[in-house]
């Protein structure tokens, strides 16, 4: 039999993924079965019939998985909850610790704030990638080596005690207050650093943020923040989101976040004089601006989404 027919290529693709002991037997049976099916095919042209039959049999990888009983998923449904819980735990605890520690070490070494932020960002991505990669590899290996239905050793089985508390159904008053205070603080800080010029150097007083912003981009940011504070207070008063309120909130978030992201992206954020005096010339890495700008947009987008979702839920 020639070895370059479609059937031969198909059979080869299937059996090479099957344990060696069964290969020949499955290959022989598969050949006979395909030949039988081609013979019984309504298409008179044998080549077209062969093609149609193989198409019907489908992806050899899938067929081989069925023969060998191997999973076609990296991490199957039985392990997936434990995998997800572990990832969440690692990313919520280890990652922030390592990020802060990396920054702190740089600061303690007497390096500048820019270096420290850079080290933190570097640690965040490197350690974050590792924290995702290694559990994934380990779980995929366990998925491929364990026997069917065998529970994962060392993982506690789920009990009702693991249930989280239901989120408070008081219309998000606490969240609204926290958000109002936070936005008001941010607003106050920006104005304060402009009027009080808190940084002192060589008898001069400096602002932290670029003073040039006050003849331009800072105003929509401040207006957006003020609107956000007002909306948060209304929300606390009315005990929850309404659709018009959520829409106004979305506009306010956009007015606040888009100019801020632009300021960060264009590196118009810090007062160059301030950077020049701190630690004898501070350079802020490009990554900082990119990550900060993206962070502002992501957080604002998430807030808008949360508000709209809560409004829809309350309206329903």
């Amino acid at each position: 039999m020639s070895t370059d027919t479609l059937t031969e290529r198909y059979v080869h693709e299937v059996v090479r993924r099957i344990p060696a002991g069964q290969r020949d037997d499955i290959a022989d049976e598969l050949r006979a079965t395909i030949a039988d099916t081609v013979e019984g095919h309504r298409d008179a042209d044998p080549a077209a019939a062969e093609r149609a039959v193989l198409t019907e049999m489908g992806d050899p990888v899938r067929l081989a998985a069925r023969y060998s009983g191997r999973p076609l998923a990296l991490i199957g449904p039985e392990l997936y909850p434990a995998y997800l819980r572990l990832l969440k735990l690692l990313l919520a605890t280890v990652l922030p610790l390592v990020t802060v520690a990396a920054s702190a070490v740089d600061l303690l070494d007497g390096k500048g704030a820019g270096d420290a932020v850079g080290a933190g960002i570097g640690a965040f991505f490197v350690v974050g990638a590792q924290l995702v990669a290694w559990p994934t590899v380990v779980f995929a290996l366990i998925e491929r080596t364990r026997r069917d239905g065998e529970p994962l050793p060392g993982t506690p089985t789920w009990t009702p005690d693991d249930l989280p508390e239901v989120p408070q159904q008081e219309g998000g008053r606490v969240a609204g207050m926290v958000s109002a205070v936070w936005n008001a603080l941010l607003l106050g800080l920006i104005v304060w650093q402009h009027t009080a010029e808190p940084v002192r150097t060589d008898g001069k007083r400096l602002q932290v943020l670029d003073p040039a912003l006050w003849s331009g981009w800072i105003w929509p940011v401040l207006a957006g923040l003020a609107a956000l504070v007002a909306i948060d207070l209304v929300r606390v008063g009315t005990r929850g989101w309404t659709v018009p309120l959520a829409a106004a909130h979305a506009v306010a978030q956009a007015v606040f976040a888009l100019p801020l992201a632009w300021i960060l992206h264009e590196r118009l954020f810090f007062n160059p004089e301030f950077l020049g005096t701190v630690n004898g010339g501070l350079t802020v890495r490009d990554e900082f601006y990119t990550v900060a700008a993206l962070g502002v947009l992501v957080v604002a987008g998430h807030e808008v989404f949360k508000g709209l979702r809560a409004a829809r839920k309350q309206a329903a």
């Binding site: 049976e29 079965t33 099916t37 019907e56 049999m57 489908g58 067929l63 069925r66 023969y67 009983g69």
Partner: peptide, 12 residues
């Protein structure tokens, strides 16, 4: 039943 289901099933 499809062949790609039946033939592995017989083996199993």
């Amino acid at each position: 039943v499809d062949g790609n289901t039946l033939y592995p099933l017989l083996r199993r």
